[in-house]
Amino acid sequence: MEKKQGQLSEKEKQVEQNDRIHQRNKVERHDKSPKEEVLRLAAIAVSFDMRLRSSDMPVHMQEHALRCTRSFLDSSPNLPPNNTHLARALKKEFDSVYGPAWHCVVGKSFGSFVTHSPGGFLYFSLDSLSVLLFQTVVQMVTEPAKS
């Protein structure tokens, strides 16, 4: 299918809409106290039928994760969620927006013991599905100097 000049694909429209939402949220965050941000996040979690279990992440990033998860799940409402696709989508989104090395585990029953970067950990659930999203430090590997 050929795209006419000036027309955007559905994916491009979705990306532009997400950019506008992120810009609006940035502006709104500057006007809010930390307590108001937490209350707003709690309201979002309730409206999305999600439970925040544990977090070491700024409120705006938590909100971003919840919105991305809900958006992914709503994109195919008649199908059961694909855990692998959800994990991959969250990882790619956070890698592109907040830098590398994000990791995501999605499932109904799993255990974990992870080391994460400060401000880079979120664990939440919806229904029987749990989501663990965390960031690790990436260090450049260099070859040892030859003598």
Results as ranks from 00 to 15, higher is better:
residue 66 L to C: 10
residue 78 N to G: 15
residue 41 L to T: 10
residue 100 P to R: 05
residue 140 M to A: 11
residue 106 V to M: 00
residue 70 R to N: 13
residue 7 Q to A: 12
residue 25 N to E: 14
residue 49 D to P: 04
residue 124 F to M: 04
residue 121 F to C: 06
residue 112 S to A: 05
residue 127 D to W: 05
residue 42 A to Y: 13
residue 73 L to R: 00
residue 75 S to L: 09
residue 71 S to L: 12
residue 135 Q to P: 03
residue 100 P to V: 09
residue 29 R to Q: 13
residue 106 V to E: 00
residue 42 A to N: 15
residue 58 P to C: 03
residue 63 E to Q: 12
residue 102 W to G: 04
residue 102 W to F: 03
residue 145 A to T: 15
residue 39 L to G: 10
residue 59 V to T: 13
residue 94 F to Q: 08
residue 28 E to R: 11
residue 87 A to F: 00
residue 127 D to A: 06
residue 54 S to E: 15
residue 121 F to P: 05
residue 118 P to I: 06
residue 8 L to R: 10
residue 28 E to G: 01
residue 3 K to D: 15
residue 88 R to C: 00
residue 23 Q to R: 14
residue 39 L to R: 14
residue 19 D to R: 07
residue 117 S to G: 07
residue 147 S to E: 05
residue 22 H to D: 13
residue 2 E to N: 09
residue 8 L to T: 08
residue 24 R to M: 11
residue 94 F to M: 15
residue 116 H to E: 07
residue 6 G to F: 01
residue 72 F to C: 04
residue 30 H to L: 09
residue 36 E to M: 02
residue 93 E to H: 01
residue 99 G to S: 09
residue 137 V to G: 05
residue 144 P to S: 10
residue 19 D to L: 09
residue 32 K to N: 03
residue 109 S to W: 08
residue 103 H to S: 06
